[in-house]
Design a protein around this nucleic acid. Structure first.
Length: 427
DNA sequence: TCTGGGGTCCTAGGACCC
DNA sequence: TCTGGGGTCCTAGGACCC
């Protein structure tokens, strides 16, 4: 693999969309450009994306909406619920543009991609990066920043500098004084160093990225395991985290959500579980996979000190791999009954599909009647109807109608790019 | 008063086997 | 010089990411 090459030849770029969710909303409501805008998490709980104007007002990442109610009112901050249909489609457009600049592309998250720019003319790299940035803005109205470095960790760090640079591009490879840059970053700014690891490092006097480079390797390894050792090498310019071009096969698929309000009775909880089982089965079918086991969990709100706390988990080993909605709902409802406890205030439930494998490689079970085959044609018809007339047009009765448990989304924008009836009208 | 959802990787410890 | 040792598998929990 790449180990046969000199490590110094590696060049990575990290492309990161600026305030991605906010930028997606603004792309379709230009009147909010230059204004404070925030996007909320699921359930309209807390702030997950902020425009620069919102940041300037002191609105912090992750703050609950009601904490900033006065600020929102006073400064006319525009508030959106999350619209993942819109963000997912905008993301796909950006990734498609990037893939025209280089096929060696790793889609790292909804708003980030690593590019392998090894072999590009060193002197032309910065101009190339600026061209990428301008092209994306021209076609999508989404502003991005590019950070360039000899390793992914350093490209990530460079991107943080790029975010504060007028051109939106920065390369530590082209920096005349990289030590100065490295000293400006605290250890928790490093990709892969979280709160806990930062505490341990700081206790040993390792405060900046530069300090971490110069720390004793055995000490770093002892404190942060092999993960930390790898990060230290990457900081030194030795590439050990490679580009993952093919998306990895999912090992587990989760569908979970907090309830809009606390729940105590089992009936609405069972409805929520049935909906999660439905969602899991849909995700499995999209991947062409089945799961051979799953877990159902149900827990109380850990933030409520006055409540009795409980975290129930039930694991179900299926007699055969399946992605059939009705079968998964059936097993999931039995499982939730086994972990339900009376008189508690429940906050969240969910289902985790495990032992996932492609549908055509599913293990057959000699001793169990494989009922999955029987239901396949019915499920196929349901998928077709739901795809044509909208999700949830056809669903199982156990999923309920009134949805006492459903999350809040009071400020959602339209699906401008994926629904004909939501297309923007030009006067 | 309320604080999201969906993932991966690593380690430690127990069970079990030969 | 020696108290059995070495290996796998599974699970729970921690940490981190966006």
């Amino acid at each position: 693999m790449s180990s046969s090459h000199a490590q110094s030849e590696e060049v990575f770029a990290l492309v990161d969309c600026n305030s991605f969710y906010v930028s997606c909303e603004r792309a379709f409501t230009p009147k909010f450009r230059g204004k404070p805008v925030v996007v909320l998490s699921n359930n309209d709980g807390c702030v997950v994306s902020r425009s620069n104007e919102a940041k300037a007002l002191g609105i912090k990442m992750g703050v609950p909406l009601h904490h900033i109610k006065d600020l929102v009112k006073e400064h006319n901050v525009y508030v959106y619920s999350s619209n993942y249909t819109l963000y997912g489609d905008m993301s796909a457009r950006i990734m498609r543009i990037l893939s025209e600049f280089t096929p060696e592309l790793e889609i790292y998250s909804i708003d980030e991609a690593f590019l392998d720019l090894k072999g590009f003319d060193h002197n032309a790299l910065i101009a190339y990066a600026e061209n990428i940035k301008e092209t994306i803005y021209k076609y999508t109205s989404i502003p991005v920043s590019l950070g360039i470095g000899p390793t992914k960790v350093l490209a990530k760090l460079s991107n943080k500098v790029a975010k504060k640079t007028p051109t939106g591009v920065y390369s530590i490879l082209h920096e005349s004084d990289p030590v100065k840059t490295l000293k400006e970053f605290s250890v928790e700014d490093i990709w892969g160093v979280g709160r806990k690891s930062a505490e341990k490092l700081k206790a040993k006097g390792i405060l900046s990225a530069f300090d971490m480079i110069n720390a004793t390797p055995s000490l770093v390894r002892e404190m942060l395991t092999v993960v930390g050792a790898r990060i230290q090498d990457e900081l030194k310019g030795k590439s050990c985290i490679s580009l993952e071009e093919a998306p990895k096969k999912k090992k587990q698929i989760v569908s979970s959500r907090s309830f809009g309000d606390l729940l105590t009775d089992i009936e609405p909880i069972k409805e929520a579980v049935a909906n999660h089982a439905t969602r899991l089965s849909e995700k499995l079918r999209q991947e062409g996979s089945v799961c051979n086991s799953f877990q159902v969990f149900l827990h109380t709100n850990a933030f409520r000190n006055q409540d009795v706390q409980y975290h129930g988990v039930a694991t179900v080993n299926l007699p055969f791999g399946t992605n059939e909605t009705n079968l998964l709902i059936g097993y999931a409802l039995t499982a939730v009954e086994s972990i339900y406890r009376e008189k508690l205030n429940f906050k969240k439930c969910g289902i985790i599909g495990m032992e996932i494998c492609p549908h055509d490689e599913a293990q057959l079970n000699l001793f169990a009647d494989n009922k999955a085959e029987l239901f396949r044609p019915m499920i196929k018809v349901m998928d077709e109807i739901n795809s044509r007339f909208g999700t949830q047009t056809l669903k199982f009765g156990s999923c309920g109608v009134r949805k006492h448990w459903e999350m809040r989304a009071d400020h959602k924008s339209k699906c401008y790019t994926t629904r004909f009836q939501d297309l923007v009208v030009v006067n």
